[in-house]
């Protein structure tokens, strides 16, 4: 039992924090949001570092590391609120790697790993997915409807992609509509598909955890400086207790996300439970902590100028993807019923 990172994993986190602090400070995030486009040089740099393929097997052009290493990167990307298609592409990569056939993996994963043919993924209803991240620039879109995943190649006339503005301009979204019903190639059997979706949920949870931590850090810096009634506002318990709550929520999200990532790599029996824990805890933490950040910044927090709103907006969009927290809560309850009589627990001790 050891709930800590290895030195290599810590190194990944340190490198990511340093690089993103330098290359994706809030001014860059704002520029990307206001211009409605990602900074291509940042993406180029991430590709050169091999980040898009960090969790993709070496045989398919990736670095062959685990979901845990990807989670470490994504938490940092969330912390930076970086404007980049890395998350959507990596999430689709996890799904295809887990659920795709040998042939599909060999064909699709290399382009995902080196960023030359990216993919993205979303839930659809009646052949329409309302908000698909980074679909316009992607080579492939995976739509999941009623537990069935279908892969569409962009540009083959099977789907129509219309860009849509959302409250989160730091990321590109589009509506994707299947124009030729029944088109596309099917991806994965139900069981492997579920495992792939669970991995994608964990990736979202990691970004949400990073967003929550950033909201907390920005808020702490502000309430230690800002003075009212002759004292820093952080002195007031209504303020400091809300900060403590932000920490509690963020640490909870982090515990769940790391556990889930570990389960994805090492303990398939705990994956479903872990993924739903992570998605629930991180969605709640992300939305609540970023909302608290706006509140605790006062009027300035409500301005376009202050950067806390990017975090709040991103958190809402992330929380809305791949099933809302309420569905994951119900799933946890169902898993608890199923697991109650479990005589020999899964490999995971916790």
């Amino acid at each position: 039992m050891n709930f800590d990172f290895t030195d290599d994993q810590r190194e990944i986190r340190r490198t990511a924090r340093e690089l993103l602090t330098a290359r994706s400070p809030m001014e860059r995030v704002r520029e990307a949001a206001e211009e409605g486009a990602y900074d291509p040089s940042l993406w180029q740099e991430l590709v050169e570092l091999g980040w898009p393929g960090i969790a993709i097997p070496e045989a398919h052009g990736g670095q062959g590391l685990g979901v845990l290493e990807l989670v470490i990167l994504l938490e940092e990307l969330g912390y930076a609120a970086a404007a980049s298609p890395l998350l959507s592409n990596a999430a689709a990569g996890l799904l295809i790697d887990a659920a795709g056939s040998e042939e599909q993996r060999a064909r699709l994963l290399p382009g995902i790993a080196d960023g030359s043919a990216t993919a993205t993924l979303a839930f659809a209803r009646e052949d329409v997915a309302d908000l698909v991240p980074d679909a316009e620039a992607a080579a492939h879109v995976v739509l999941v409807e009623d537990g069935v995943a279908t892969l569409h190649a962009v540009g083959d006339g099977e789907i129509a992609i219309e860009p849509r503005e959302t409250i989160d301009p730091t990321r590109r979204y589009a509506r994707v509509r299947v124009t030729r019903p029944g088109s596309g190639e099917s991806l994965g059997a139900p069981a492997t598909l579920a495992a792939g979706l669970d991995r994608a949920e964990i990736a979202l949870a990691a970004e949400l955890t990073g967003l929550a931590q950033r909201a907390l850090d920005m808020t702490l810096a502000y309430v230690k400086e800002r003075r009212q009634f002759g004292v820093p506002v952080g002195v007031f318990q209504a303020v400091s207790h809300r900060c403590a709550q932000m920490l509690l929520d963020t640490e909870g999200a982090r515990s769940a996300t790391y556990f889930a990532a570990w389960a994805a790599d090492a303990d398939p029996d705990s994956l479903a439970r872990g993924a739903s824990l992570a998605k629930t805890a991180a969605s709640d933490a992300g939305v609540h902590a970023t909302a608290a950040a706006i509140q605790l910044h006062g009027g300035i927090g409500f301005t376009w100028e202050a950067d806390v709103h990017w975090l709040y907006k991103r958190a809402h969009l992330d929380a809305a993807q791949l099933g809302p927290a309420r569905e994951h809560r119900r799933r946890v309850a169902r898993l608890a019923v199923a697991g109650a009589g479990r005589s020999s627990p899964a490999q995971a001790a916790i």
Binding site: F3, T280, H328, R329
Partner: peptide
Amino acid sequence: AERLGDLHVRAEILRLTAYRGLT
């Protein structure tokens, strides 16, 4: 189901956080 699930989530997160603290 949702409320019971929420309590399970909280209880499990507590447990995971306690183990992290142990490390």
